[in-house]
Design a protein around this nucleic acid. Sequence first.
DNA 1: TTGAAAGCGATACCAA
DNA 2: TTGGTATCGCTTTCAA
Lengths: 354, 354
Amino acid sequence: MMKNTSATEPFRSPGSARATIIDVARAAGVALSSASAALNDRPGVSDATRARIKEVAAELDYVPSMRGKSLSSQRAFAVGLVVERHPDVLEEDPFFGAFIGGIEESLSAEGYVLALLVTEDAQATHRRLVELVQGRRVDGVFLNELKVDDPRIALLRDLGVPTVAVNPAEPDFAFPAVHQDGAGAIRDLVHTLARLGHRRIAHVSGPDTYAHSAERLHAWQAAMRGEGLEADLVEDGSFTYEGGRRAAEILLTRDDRPTAVFCANDQSAIGFLNRAIEFGISVPDALSIVGYDGNRIGEFVKPQLATVQTSPRQLGREAARMLLDAVTGGSPEDVVLPEARFVLRGSAGRLRTP
Amino acid sequence: MMKNTSATEPFRSPGSARATIIDVARAAGVALSSASAALNDRPGVSDATRARIKEVAAELDYVPSMRGKSLSSQRAFAVGLVVERHPDVLEEDPFFGAFIGGIEESLSAEGYVLALLVTEDAQATHRRLVELVQGRRVDGVFLNELKVDDPRIALLRDLGVPTVAVNPAEPDFAFPAVHQDGAGAIRDLVHTLARLGHRRIAHVSGPDTYAHSAERLHAWQAAMRGEGLEADLVEDGSFTYEGGRRAAEILLTRDDRPTAVFCANDQSAIGFLNRAIEFGISVPDALSIVGYDGNRIGEFVKPQLATVQTSPRQLGREAARMLLDAVTGGSPEDVVLPEARFVLRGSAGRLRTP
DNA sequence: TTGAAAGCGATACCAA
DNA sequence: TTGGTATCGCTTTCAA
């Protein structure tokens, strides 16, 4: 309980400094070490003494200084997340809100805190990661949005910092990882589109620098082959609304334009959708569109966006749980979340009669 | 420059612990205090010694431990942001991405770090703020999304922690504040709607627990009076998509239903828009809709959402700048950003001929 | 069980 | 200008 700092406060005058563990020990008439043991539920104090010490601590509004605690215990009680994004892109993407919310669910229970940094490029990311880790500000970090040949992998290995990866491309990754597979959902959606009569299904990819761009691309290619279709229509959509529009401009002005498209994320899918409509192409009657992520904004557009529903919040929650395990000496097992699922909505269309 | 930990590392064997300032001092053949002064650009060391010390520090890959630094300097070099939101709502709202991006622009330049917490209710907010501040984890905090009679005001005052408020309701607030006014834009949009022929303009408000809900409501009321219109149609939209839909269900099934609506944020406006369309009400022909915030998602829907463009990123940048000033002993002046502007887009409609 | 004392890694004061 | 030393608030070992 938080007490107000009234004049009735024992052992501490109204405007005086915060109580330290020394004050607690003195007020309880015990040794410093006993106070520490009692307050941290370590053995070595009798139940009666422990209770009395805790009582006194509460009386004094004692809150341990994380500075002293960090220095002596060699732990920061904080973990770091470095997001390499242009701030404008950060605004457009709802992934992080949910992901961070999930992280917090795990961290707050353990008294940990999230240090969140936003950087604009790989160089800044490198610099701030070093600051964070070498500066002993955090006990562990999340490795998110992996790139192809991501330089952070070597850096974090060299730094020797506990790390948990989020959706790395390989199943056996350099660090413990949370993974949510989307290949099944992509197979489903391609199959559904094929059953709907589509033969020419394009893919609007993410930048090929990202590992998950490649992953989605390959899953799409495999799915197309599985349906006996040719996987030749690919255009970059940069994971952005504008990128989706640009991809639409290219793909939809071809003579043999696709009748369906699978976009690597929801933003680009919505860009594609809107540009298609502006071209006078009716969705889903003349064009089926499917996104990826399962953002809420997909429900806001008309027609509603068919998509692959992922679980950013669970991803965050599990990643944080694992990271806490790792920083306390554990060797967390990889976590595989239930597969992402294809969610059929208006933009994917209904049965086509050729 | 970051050097790898190869065997060529001087003064430090491959697997050994990080260098501390003691190692630097010893290696440079100077006293601990001289090393500290040199590395922090404090006076008291000759230029030659300083240069040599810095050189040695670089050789050793010395990065100061923020733990030691924090304890001795009585500063955390971190500031806190506690976001009280249900994680699902956090996902839907793009405000935070931009706001946090702005904060980072100011913080990273000064070597500060943002501690970001997400809480679900006022009680948790209180608890974690106390932890953060009393636990000496942060040097200052942001006070965001103010509520009416916000209990955090008294708490932060009692805690005596440097605080910067974001968009508080009153011009003279208990803490230094960044403010971006939207009243002018609301007057503009009401005027535009009136000029378009609208007489019955409704307002979909935010929860009345938020200070900015009241602010927008009052601005709308004043604007309506200014146009000689009655400000009687108000429905709560909870700042959410679903809330906007619910408000539409109530307002659009009235006999004297409004022909235009101003929603307190973009999410609720889009909910309203979609529900209206589902009712078969054509937007903007039979109904004009205006939102507030200027989220990108307003550009994704059809028709595009007219809105009031705010500047979350600048808000974050200025708030962080002020907070850094405050934690270093300054008394930052309030900052007033350029007013938010009304952005006319498709959903607001064109001239009506009665 | 309790208490004294040695760190943790920096800052900063005060003599030399 | 230098260098020794107390100090920040806590954890943890080791005797008593």
